[in-house]
């Protein structure tokens, strides 16, 4: 009988390998480090890895590095002559606000303070930490409303002055009736 064509090895069958493979035992404690090494080799394009040895990705970040990574990037061309002069940007919070916890923004409605440069729709920066003094512009609670006026306090007379002749001043018999809410430090307006 002639030799059967069935069974046995067939040339070209099975998984393609670039080269023969072997199974290796390693200490369990070294597993992580060796897999990282394997992955690193796989990641670098110079070393081609046989497909059959595709390692499982176990962590996200490779910790093992063979090439020191530069902390700066090198670009072709001139370095910027301004590099040494880079400063932080202007921060309006820092410039305009003295007491962060005590500072509030309020929006103006009305026209009684146009003489002080405060117009309808402007925003006010109000600092409650500042002591209200004579002649400062303040926000006060009057008749259940927050009101912007100039604070007048002389010889026992307390008034809230309007900065528009068409509006009356508000006079107080005693300071008890009026609660100063805060002192206006800045006006923000659109132009």
């Amino acid at each position: 009988m002639s030799k059967s064509n069935w069974g046995g090895q067939r040339a070209g069958a099975g998984r393609k390998r670039a080269e023969p493979t072997v199974t290796v035992r390693i200490p369990a404690s070294s597993k992580e480090a060796i897999l990282k090494l394997v992955r690193h080799m796989k990641a670098s394009s110079s070393v081609r890895f046989p497909l059959s040895l595709e390692p499982l990705l176990l962590t996200q970040q490779p910790a093992l590095q063979f090439i020191p990574r530069m902390s700066y990037s090198v670009r072709a061309g001139f370095p910027s002559p301004a590099d040494d002069y880079v400063e932080k940007q202007i921060d309006l919070n820092e410039e305009l606000i003295q007491h962060r916890e005590a500072t509030f923004f309020l929006r103006v409605r009305g026209h009684s303070m146009i003489g002080a440069g405060i117009d309808d729709g402007d925003e006010l920066i109000v600092d409650r930490a500042i002591m209200p003094e004579h002649n400062r512009i303040v926000v006060a609670a009057v008749d259940n409303e927050l009101t912007v006026k100039r604070f007048y306090q002389r010889n026992g007379v307390v008034k809230l002055l309007a900065e528009n002749p068409q509006y009356p001043d508000i006079e107080f018999k005693s300071e008890q009736e009026m609660v100063i809410w805060g002192v206006v430090t800045k006006v923000i307006k659109s132009v």
Partner: peptide, 14 residues
């Protein structure tokens, strides 16, 4: 939201 939304600031009359 008087203190956290620019469009909802508290109003001061004048």
């Amino acid at each position: 939201c008087y203190t956290t939304e620019w469009n909802e600031l508290a109003v001061a009359r004048c």
